[in-house]
Design a protein around this nucleic acid. Sequence first.
RNA 1: GGCCCGUUGGUCAAGAGGUUAAGACACGGCCCUUUCACGGCUGUAACACGAGUUCGAUUCUCGUACGGGUCACCA
Length: 546
Amino acid sequence: MADYKKLADLLYPEATLTIEEIEKKYPARNLPEGACVTRLAPSPTGFVHLGNLFPAVTCERLSHQSGGTFILRIEDTDQKREVEGAVEILLSSLKRYNIIFDEGATADGEVGSYGPYYQRQRADIYKAYAKKLIAEGRAYPCFCSEERLEEMRKEQEQNKDNFGYYGKYAACSNLSYEEIEEKVKNGEKFVLRFRSQGDPSKTDHIDDLIKGRLEFPENDIDHVMLKSDGIPTYHFAHSVDEKTMGVTHVVRGEEWLATLPFHVQLFKALGFPLPHYMHVAQLMKLDNGTKRKLSKRKDPEASLAYYYEQGFSAGSVMEYIMTLLNSNFEEWRIANPTAPLDDFKFSPDKMSISGCLFDMDKLIDVSRNTISVMTAEDVYEQVTAWAKDNDSELYDKFTADPDYAKRILSIGRGCEKPRKDIAKWNEVKAYVSFFYDDLFTQSGEFPETVSSEDKLEILNRYSELYDENDDQETWFGKVTNLAEELGFAPKTKLYKKNPELYKGHVGDVSMVLRVAITGRRNSPDLYEIMKILGADKVKERLENAK
RNA sequence: GGCCCGUUGGUCAAGAGGUUAAGACACGGCCCUUUCACGGCUGUAACACGAGUUCGAUUCUCGUACGGGUCACCA
C-alpha cells in the first residue's frame, strides 16, 4: 500500500502524541552502573497468588540490591476481570512481606515520573507507537468477526495447520486503503494486528537469566496489538511499557515463554532494546500422584491470604520463598541464623530452572526456625497483631497483661538452642493455654505407675516445700528428695537398672506435678512455668488436682 | 496436534566428564533427658529410559517416555 502514513491517521485520528514527545517525556533513567529496574505488573483481580510472591521477591531483591527502582504497574487492559480495591489489597498483602515499591500505582494514585502506571491511562502512548508501526507497514487493521476467526480455527484444525492469524489465513492483511477506508467510514470495528515478517523455519534465541539460552522458531502470527476499543493487548503494552519506563529486567512466570517470540519481534520492530528476561518456574502441587499448577480455585494454600489467616508469620513465608528462590539461601541462613534477610546476596543464577512442589512440611520447619530466633517481644507483637484479626480471645488475654504474655513467650528463647514449639500463630493459644485459668483444661493423664495415695502425698508435700525463691537446682533437689522418700528412684537410670527396687522414678513424680500444674503430660520446663504462674497459682492447681 | 520448557532420593536441592553423588525437610533407630521441644549420632532412599561421543557419562549429543506451559480482542 502506497500511503501507510495516511492509513495510520485514518485508523487513529485522535492520537496526536508523537514519538518525539514521548521520548522527551520518558528519558533514560539516571541510575548507577548495574542498577536494575524491575516491575511487578499484575492485573487488578484482587487475588494475590502465592506464586506471585516469587517474581515479586525476585524483582524487589534485584532492584533494591542494585540501587535500582522497583515499579508497580497495573495491567488493567481487561476490564472484565477488574475488581474494585484490588490495588489496595495487593499493596497491603505485599507490604506484609516487606515488598515496597519505589514507583508506580499506590492506594490513592501513583508516584513517579514515568507514569501513568495504569495501562488504560497510557492509551495515547500505545497509539503513538501503533501509528508508527502502521506508517511503516508493520501493522494493519483487521475487521474479522469472532465467527470468522472461529471458522478459521476449524479450518486449521481440519487442515492440521497451526492455529492463528497468519499467512493465507490472514484475510485482512492485504486490504487496500480504499477497502479499509470504506469499512472505517461504515463504523466497522477493527483490531490492529502486527504484520509479522517472521519465518518459522528460522530460529531466533534470547538468553534468559534463569533458563539460559532459549531457542524458538520465529513468530509468523499476526497477533493483536490493539483491541477494538483501542486498548493494547499484554504483548504490545509489554514492549512499549518496558521501554518507556526504562525497565531493565523483566521477571515473569514461564507461562509467557510461549509468546516470547512475538515479544522479541515487537521489540525489534519498534527499535527497542530487549530487556533482560527472567522466566521463573511455576509453583506446583502434588495431587493424586501427579504434579499440577497450584490452583487458585481448588487450593486454599494458593492464596497469600491463606498464610496470614493460618497464622504463618510473613517472615516465615519469606524464608521459605527464599529457600526455593535461591538454592544457596538455606546454607547461608544456617551460617547466619539471625542476620537480616537484606544481607543475603540474591542472585539470578541461583534460581531454579524447573518448577517445584509446594511443601507444607518444609514451610513449617522453616517457620519454626524463624520464630525460634525471634525475641519474645517480636513474637508478642506479631501474635497480637495476628490475633487482633483472627482470635479475639487470645488478643484480649495478651493485651490485658502484655508483660505476663511476654514472660510466657520467653520460655526457652534467646538461648543457644531455642525451643521450636511454634510454627504458626494459631498454635500459640494452645501452647500458652495453661497459663490462663479459663483456657486451662485438665487433659493429661496422671502416670498410672503412681498410686492414688502417692499422688495425693506428692501433691500435699510439694505444696509445702515449693518455694518460688529456690533456684532451679535447689528446686529439683527437693523434688528428687521427695521422690526418694516415697520410694521412687532419684534418677531414671537407677530405676531402669533395678526396677524391682523402686515404685518408679523421679520422672513419675515430676509428671504428677506437671499434669497437676499444666494439665498435660508435656510442657516446657516446669520450673520456669511455675515461676511465671507464681506460688499461689501453683498451689491452687495442686489443690484442684487432688 | 504444533511449538516451547523441564526430569538427581517422597519433597527442596548441590554437584561435576572419573566423587564413598553434598546438605535441608519428612520418615526410622540410637543417645541426651524429670515430660515435651531442642541438640548430637545414625539409617532407609536418587542421577527417567535407549542409543551415540569418550578410556570413562548421571554430567555432552540425539532420540523415547513422562510431566508442565501455551496456541484469545486474558494477563
